[in-house]
Simulated assay, not measured.
Amino acid sequence: MRVLGIDPGYAIVGWGVVEYAGNRFAPVAYGAVCTDKDTPFEQRLCEVYDGVLDICKRYQPQALSLEKLYYQHNQTTVIGVAEARGVILLAAAQCGIPIYEYTPMQVKQAVTGYGKAVKKQIQEMTRILLKLPAIPKPDDTADALAMAVAHCHCATSRLSGLR
């Protein structure tokens, strides 16, 4: 199974493609789509869309794993992130990629086995599972890889429950 994990945003969209077979993970590619703060917001959304569409076409994932949006502190930021999520979802839908959403607690549980793990624990466990020499930077990229790993664990758990 090939999964694209995305940490949504409009300044930085972390992404990571992971291959999962036989309980083994292999990183395929990862990085970030970055937009300039001085660029008009609507153009930033175009850049996010184009970047994610290119990733979807280039790596042809079988699933997109994305964090569920939740309101944290800044109402202005959450609206912008929601709009960025919209263009991300559109790009995936246009490529025919099924979309799966997970809460932060579900990701923590799936990656570390502990629903209240801290960010560094998640990043380190993701690094170990993917056999990476270091935690990818920026943090958004590491978070995106964790999203992909979480979906691999959750999807196979769902499938094994169907047997």
Rank of each mutant, 00 (worst) to 15 (best):
Val3Ile: 15
Leu4Gln: 02
Gly5Lys: 00
Gly5Val: 02
Ile6Tyr: 00
Asp7Gln: 07
Asp7Ser: 04
Pro8Tyr: 02
Pro8Cys: 10
Gly9Met: 01
Gly9Asp: 01
Tyr10Ser: 14
Ile12Asp: 00
Val13Gly: 08
Gly14Pro: 02
Trp15Ser: 04
Trp15Lys: 00
Gly16Glu: 01
Val17Glu: 02
Val17Asn: 02
Glu19Arg: 13
Tyr20Cys: 09
Gly22Met: 06
Asn23Gln: 14
Asn23Met: 10
Asn23Leu: 12
Val28Asp: 06
Ala29Thr: 14
Gly31Trp: 04
Val33His: 07
Cys34Ile: 09
Asp36Cys: 14
Lys37Trp: 06
Asp38Asn: 14
Glu42Gly: 06
Gln43Met: 13
Arg44Pro: 00
Leu45Met: 07
Leu45Lys: 06
Val48Ser: 02
Tyr49Pro: 07
Gly51Phe: 02
Val52Leu: 11
Val52Trp: 00
Leu53Pro: 01
Leu53Gln: 12
Ile55Cys: 08
Ile55Tyr: 13
Lys57His: 12
Arg58Gly: 04
Arg58Ser: 14
Arg58Asp: 13
Tyr59Ile: 08
Gln60Ala: 13
Pro61Glu: 06
Ala63Phe: 15
Leu64Lys: 08
Leu66Lys: 00
Leu66Cys: 11
Leu66Met: 13
Leu69Trp: 05
Leu69Met: 14
Tyr70Ala: 09
Tyr70Cys: 06
Val78Gln: 04
Val81Tyr: 00
Val87Phe: 07
Ile88Asn: 06
Ala93Met: 08
Ala93His: 09
Ala93Pro: 06
Ala93Arg: 11
Gln94Thr: 09
Pro98Phe: 14
Ile99Glu: 02
Glu101Val: 05
Glu101Gly: 06
Tyr102Arg: 09
Tyr102Trp: 10
Tyr102His: 13
Tyr102Gly: 07
Pro104Leu: 11
Met105Gln: 15
Lys108Val: 12
Lys108Trp: 13
Lys108Pro: 07
Ala110Ile: 06
Ala110His: 10
Thr112His: 11
Lys119Trp: 07
Gln123Arg: 07
Met125Asn: 04
Thr126Ile: 10
Thr126Asn: 10
Arg127Tyr: 11
Ile128Trp: 05
Leu129Glu: 03
Leu129Arg: 03
Leu132Ser: 08
Pro133Lys: 14
Ile135Glu: 05
Pro136Asp: 03
Lys137Leu: 14
Lys137His: 12
Pro138Lys: 05
Asp139Gly: 09
Asp139His: 09
Asp140Tyr: 05
Asp140Trp: 01
Asp143His: 05
Asp143Arg: 02
Met147Ala: 04
Met147Leu: 10
Met147Thr: 00
Ala148Ser: 04
Ala148Ile: 01
Ala150His: 03
Cys152Trp: 03
Cys152Asn: 05
Cys154Trp: 04
Ser157His: 12
Ser157Glu: 14
Arg158Gln: 10
Ser160Thr: 15
Gly161Glu: 11
Leu162Ala: 11
